[in-house]
Design a protein around this nucleic acid. Structure first.
Lengths: 199, 199, 199, 199
DNA sequence: CATGAATGAGACTTCATTCAT
DNA sequence: AATGAATGAAGTCTCATTCAT
């Protein structure tokens, strides 16, 4: 029989998720012990296993959920943008930054703990990541076809853009000198200048 | 099990360095056990301690040596460049890429294993890294003063540039589609376009 | 997850008994986890405790029930046999084999998991077992008194006979080369020859 | 460089062997924890791993070594016996008992912990065991051919004999009522009578 | 009667490190 | 310089069991 709504089970599962994001982000996956995680959650190590199958499965779930959320959200953002290529590229950049500013831990983990994912898990996440990269490549290609974008190599440009955009998430702090919107403006300006075709 | 021959000491020390770069790059510092390292070197775990003080000290040495080499080499490269601001910025970018292409493992480790460095070690490395970042910031400021560079924020621009430049090292492969020189051209073009003041 | 139907209680209890015989026989008592048992029964581990008090109590019940059944059945078989000593000994042997052929798992468990029984439980089972051994010893002694049996030592002979008879249950398979009746014939012949007084 | 003769390494390895025989015999393999074993040896649990690869490997080594010793020793005993079939069978029986009286723990373990051996390990041990069984079967067959032995089925007879002989080891105690030699006499008499062809 | 969740104890095993040889 | 052996701490995970629902 199902437990009451808001039962401890659901609360604990959410707490595990939150605590593991925090600890993996801080120390890395390999360096986070399940003892530490349990302590952070306020539970015995054995109790974690009522909610996760394995340490590895926990990591996979975190990373996959993040990637799927990113893809879904990006598609929604682009769907709400006019079809003009430069506008769409800029929308992609802005969305990437704003989405990631709210999910610093997840971004970092999704990028740096890929190597901690075992075989099939890694493959599945890499597939999602490639889908995301390709969506930016497509936007750049559309820009090139429309004659408003000029890069020496769309794929390399896409990677460079993603690296620059993702880099900022590592050091962004809500309490920092610049607001999110300012950071968006600075980066889109810099990068749009970098790829815009010049008369 | 007699010893091989001659002064194996130096050879072993070098092998440890090489093997640890490889293994840390592949699995991460926390996930690399000294057993694995010893096996890769072809020696018993206990023997590592004739060459390293501690696992932590090994990591610190690797990262510090890399950072110091980078700083020295960058200064030399700039010293050999004419004082024109744009030329110096481009030289910095080109040097960053070419130096790092040859040291993929080191870059990655220096960036992703900072959190594995304990207290004072981390501080020392962070200081070196800040010195490097500041040298790019200075170049950008000189460009602004000379009226040839325009960024919304030099510091943010510098971080974005470094992130974009460093990102390529993660995926660069000598056997890839593009040569090192082509990658340098693509990135300097993209990023110089991003910061050059426009008439 | 609604319940199946009707009074599942009894059915579950029987299923636990069946499944635990199977698993203890296959893996041993210590190596059978209640998780495995629950899975075999098709129930959650916690549900087992509606039917058993304790893992230890489960084992004790299985073993005691088996021993008591064996004693009861043996007494019934002897009661139905003429008082002639050799006939009674042979009847004992045949009954031992036929009873055990139908209860391979129980025999094995009753013999090999004695050490898993704790203190008082072990004592109680050992008492039952000794009663059984003594009943064969008595038959042999009656034979000696009647001058139709000759062993160097009745107790040792009884143990050797029981060991030989029980041994066959370990490897007996219904689908094997020989029928139960053939195996009974072979063993009674062999062992009766072993103890019969010779002119 | 090798350690001194009689170094602690060798002594510890032997102590582990001795202690594990004792504990497995007493509690069973699954029920023996490596903590207990280490405590019995007088060493930390981690130190066991300087001498064993795995708990499973330890069991396998114990059982295999026992079986190989049994085979070697049996062959030697038969080689020293005249070719007369009955004499050889009796020599086999006597050797089985005397060899096993000195190795109560090993016999028990080799018989009852077969199921604790995983896949290939079990197969290897079963092969050794079958070789031993076959050697008795061969002796019986030779006896049948020479007209001095009569069993309904040599294979079944061999199993019954081995079961009877092995059974005694379970309860034999040096301090018991009967000497080893008496037990040998009792059993060989009983069993030789069981199989000898009668005029 | 069944279950999801929790737990304390403990399972096997690996960790970085030390030290006598 | 190298190593076999030892160690205390800690790793992930499973154990039997309990209890509110």
């Amino acid at each position: 029989m199902a437990r009451k709504a808001g039962s401890n089970g659901i609360r604990t599962a959410a707490a595990i998720r939150r605590a593991s994001l925090k600890l993996i982000h801080r120390h890395g996956f390999a360096a986070m012990s399940l003892r530490d995680l349990a302590a952070e959650v306020g539970v015995q190590p054995a109790s974690l296993y009522n909610h996760i199958a394995t340490k590895q499965a926990l990591l996979f779930d975190l990373v996959r959920d993040h990637m799927e959320g990113l893809l879904t959200s990006t598609e929604a953002a682009l769907a709400a943008t006019p079809p003009e290529p430069l506008a769409r590229i800029e929308a992609f950049m802005a969305h990437h930054l704003l989405y990631h500013f709210e999910r610093k831990q997840e971004v970092y983990i999704a990028n740096s703990e890929l190597r901690a994912l075992e075989g099939p898990n890694r493959a599945r996440v890499l597939a999602l990541r490639r889908r995301y990269e390709r969506s930016l490549v497509s936007l750049l290609e559309a820009g090139e076809r429309a004659g408003v974008v000029s890069t020496s190599d769309v794929k390399v440009a896409a990677f460079a853009i993603l690296a620059a955009l993702t880099g900022v998430c590592v050091w962004y702090k809500p309490s920092g000198r610049l607001t999110k919107e300012e950071l968006v403006a600075i980066h889109t300006t810099l990068l749009m200048n970098g790829i815009r075709r010049r008369g």
